[in-house]
């Protein structure tokens, strides 16, 4: 088990290196530069020249990359050009907010997805199955952005049940309840796509498991149906876990649209803004942190797999 995990961690390093090179190069190829966006239309030519030099943007891209990588190895992810602050703490704070949203959304997606999937698999051909299939199809195809806006317009501005955005109440109490109150709408919007995907995965894995030979033999032994289903569910879990892990990984990368609509101060919003400002150090730090989170989630999923299914523990 330990060797298995070590090998996985070893694989993570080249993955992150590859991600960092791709993002470093692509963001420099697209038109627009941080100096122009920092100075706006009012800056002077001298200021522009001086700033380009100060930021080290006049060096060739490979030189810039090596220098950047050298600093990253020492834990220095550079300084935000637009925010005039160190990039890592800035990105880290946003990542923590995204983590909060992601965990909430993941819970909604996993619990909802499993419930819907099991319902669809065990009530085949009935209304409940049709309902759950329809819900999962809707949740995959409905654009998060529109769903978010609809929730805001009807449940927040219309009924006043939930705040329309932000993460904390700016004037009142800021306890856990306050946070939770702000979590519902963005959490549900962000959970929709993973919920649908998980539900479909659960349904097909459950159907596979339910048609396996051992189910027949369990039934033949007179074991109650709910126990038979529990066994089938257990067998369906590993593949569900893989999909759920991937989905949580995507959530952690920052749910950009949801974060914009709900002004959620997360990583997606920070990276989105940094891209429009060409704030290179923040974009790089943000992508690196979310890539790292993705790798870590996959590691955890692999480890859980190993715990659940001894066959892959080599």
């Amino acid at each position: 088990m330990i060797r298995f995990l070590l090998r996985r961690i070893g694989l993570a390093v080249p993955t992150l290196l590859g991600v960092s090179i791709v993002i470093f190069v692509t963001i420099r190829i697209v038109p627009g530069d941080p100096v122009a966006s920092l100075l706006g239309p009012t800056g002077s030519a001298e200021a522009r020249e001086r700033l380009t030099k100060d930021l080290g943007l006049d060096a060739p891209i490979p030189v810039q990359y090596v220098k950047w990588l050298g600093n990253v190895v020492q834990g220095d992810l550079g300084r935000s050009i637009a925010k005039q602050t160190d990039a890592l703490p800035y990105v880290w704070e946003a990542f923590r907010n995204t983590l909060t949203l992601s965990i909430f959304a993941a819970l909604v997606a996993i619990l909802g997805g499993i419930a819907l999937g099991v319902l669809a698999a065990t009530r085949r051909g009935r209304v409940a199955s049709g309902f759950s299939t329809a819900v999962s199809l809707f949740s995959i195809s409905a654009p998060q952005y529109s769903v978010g806006l609809i929730l805001i317009v009807y449940l927040s501005a219309g009924r006043g049940w939930f705040p329309s955005g932000g993460m904390r109440n700016p004037t009142g109490d800021s306890g856990f309840g306050d946070l939770l109150n702000h979590l519902w709408l963005p959490g549900i919007s962000a959970a929709l796509v993973p919920l649908g995907i998980i539900a479909r995965m659960v349904r097909s894995s459950m159907l596979d498991a339910l048609s396996a030979d051992f189910v027949e033999s369990l039934r033949a032994r007179g074991i109650p149906e709910w126990k038979v289903r529990w066994h089938a569910f257990h067998n369906a879990l590993p593949s569900v876990l893989t999909i759920a892990g991937l989905q949580v990984g995507y959530l952690l990368g920052g749910v950009i649209f949801v974060e914009i609509v709900f002004s959620w101060p997360g990583l997606g919003l920070v990276v989105f803004q940094s891209i429009s400002q060409r704030d290179l150090p923040v974009i790089q730090a943000g992508v690196l942190v979310s890539a790292l989170a993705f790798v870590v989630i996959n590691l955890i999923v692999d480890a859980l797999h190993g715990l659940m299914d001894p066959r892959i523990r080599r």
């Binding site: 006043g160 109440n169 009142g172 309840g177």
Partner: peptide, 10 residues
């Protein structure tokens, strides 16, 4: 969250 206590408070 019930009844929108949070938003009214704001």
């Amino acid at each position: 969250g019930g009844g929108g206590g949070g938003t009214d408070a704001a």
